[in-house]
Design a protein around this nucleic acid. Structure first.
Lengths: 191, 191, 191, 191
DNA sequence: GATGAATGAGGGTTCATTCAT
DNA sequence: GATGAATGAACCCTCATTCAT
């Protein structure tokens, strides 16, 4: 197993276990077992559990951004761009349920609160694309004129909820259903 | 202190501490301290920590239902009833941030997943009112014809997101803003 | 076993084990075993290992002071008082070898360095009696006129060395020998 | 880097780090870093950490002996020879504080106890010069007629104490002060 | 010979739970 | 019924040592 593989295995194991059992339900020893390494090995790649948790978060964020970047077309109308973004997110989380559950755990924890605050206060570049799009929509008077934080909630609240229930196995998401959800999300923020 | 008071104090202490620090950030000893009882005493009222957590959840649910019941008017139009429900929820969580944060912690944990499954599968009476309302709306063709679980997500997703950010202090919710959020939520599910 | 007894047992076990094996050769688990308590119990009486170590130091210091206080006669000549002090110390350490070895471990560690600095800089009341006596002797011109810290070294250096070797079993200290050592120590500082 | 250099670097790094942080505050990895070698490399030169610690002790002892040998004049009177020895020791430790602190750490540990026993029991040639001198002084009736181990304590106790406090920065040692300390040490053992 | 990633036993500490008082 | 001291399994993390490269 190469060095990169080992880090990758630890990341993967952490992702799965934390997604499934939460931060405190996934001891380092369990992560080590699942990754096929010794407990001490994790500490060669991550300073401590906190660092592992934060690094994993960054990893996922980057994957999502790169996914979005593949087909984002800034010249398209607001609505199309909005639906493109949500479509990518939905598909990503459907394809990567562990990543989704992990983000949920993360956001719902002291770690996440800080990150969210930075995003809201624009200290972090995360979510820049989303904000830019919404601001443009407000300026063009196609999106409701509400505080940005509220618009985020209206835009992404339904999606988050839908994905969680899908991952919990409450229903299946096929393409027509996805499109209708995107439509509804747009209804939520459009003028 | 009467027996009931003691149980009440334990509930209150758990609520506050778990809301603030999460399940694993609120040891039984800390709860006991805050409640003004001995650690062992908790176990006379609750079988163990899990039972305490679940009981607390039921308590909050009941408080919310009783709040809703106060002014719910089944004869009003779907839209008005929907906005009434959301308004009560919003106000309740604004007035009771600890309860709100607790529910979030709860739903975002192994405890919550089970509860949610029961609701969706109609094994639990919880959320019956919401479902009834949405089903009636679908039948009357004023609400989008989507699977019930999806409608739940569309209807409550924005609200959940909004409340969390409000409690985290990202913005203030005044009455006009609340009304606009209710309006947007309705836009999300209406035909 | 009473509460006091338990604390006492932990103190005793720590004393013996640290005296024998040093700070890092005496794990908390070993201390717990020797004290006849569970590992967690130690933390009811001491915040952590550091606190235990420091508390134990204070305990010993107090025992020594109370021993000295029993027969100290401020009106006696410098020389007699000096020899009284050293005699008490010698006898105490002969009777309590673990305490002696513990103090040695303590002084020879980050813990001790700080304590010693405070004593030298007069921030701590520890050793006040010793200093007072030496200062008086210098004023009366019966003790060499040297910086206080040097006088401490000349006065107590032989004693420390002697005790350590006695405890290591290199020789026996009987009363005549003790008196000759006191005499030599006095020779070291007297004019 | 030659083989000898590598060993030298490891020795130097160990010396500094152990002097500063103690045995358990100087992990092998830290020593390796400081020495500019890989952790595993240390084990080519030293069987294990214990061996390294003991070898380092021997190294320092040899340095001191060679320093003494430079100017020792066996034909001089006892007193002059004694003061010469102490003067060399004092100057050596003032010039080499790490070596001094290391020896202190060493003597104050399971390692040191064994070494000291061997010296006292004459199993080790270490300190032979000191002993010879003291024995000669006793025979000539210029030094107190006490057991050898006691004389060692009287002779070197003040010096050890003085040096430690000097290294801890409690005072400065200039030449006149050194001479007065040597004088006092002599007072301590002389008839 | 040299490397340094990997190991895993063992360290200090926490905390849900029990039970004698 | 209430207490809270005691328990001990389990947690996160360190580090002396090994061994494939």
């Amino acid at each position: 197993m190469s060095i990169t593989d080992k880090r990758e295995e630890i990341i993967r194991a952490s992702l799965e276990l934390i997604a499934e059992h939460g931060f405190h339900g996934a001891p380092m020893s369990m992560i080590a077992d699942r990754a096929g390494v010794a407990a001490g090995t994790i500490y060669r790649y991550f300073e401590n559990k906190d660092a592992l948790i934060n690094d994993l978060y960054r990893d996922i964020q980057e994957k999502i951004y790169s996914e979005i970047a593949k087909g984002y077309q800034p010249e398209k109308p607001i609505r199309e761009r909005f639906q493109y973004l949500l479509r990518v997110l939905l598909r990503f989380f459907i394809a990567h349920p562990s990543e989704c559950r992990y983000l949920e755990q993360f956001h719902n924890s002291p770690y996440g609160a800080e990150v969210r605050r930075d995003i809201i206060l624009r200290k972090s570049g995360d979510c820049f694309l989303y904000r830019e799009l919404l601001e443009e929509g407000v300026a063009q008077q196609v999106i409701k004129d509400l505080p940005m934080a509220i618009l985020f909630a209206l835009a992404f609240g339904p999606l988050k909820y839908v994905i969680r229930d899908h991952i919990l196995g409450f229903f299946e998401l096929d393409e027509p259903l996805i499109e209708r959800i995107l439509e509804a999300s747009w209804d939520c923020i459009r003028r």
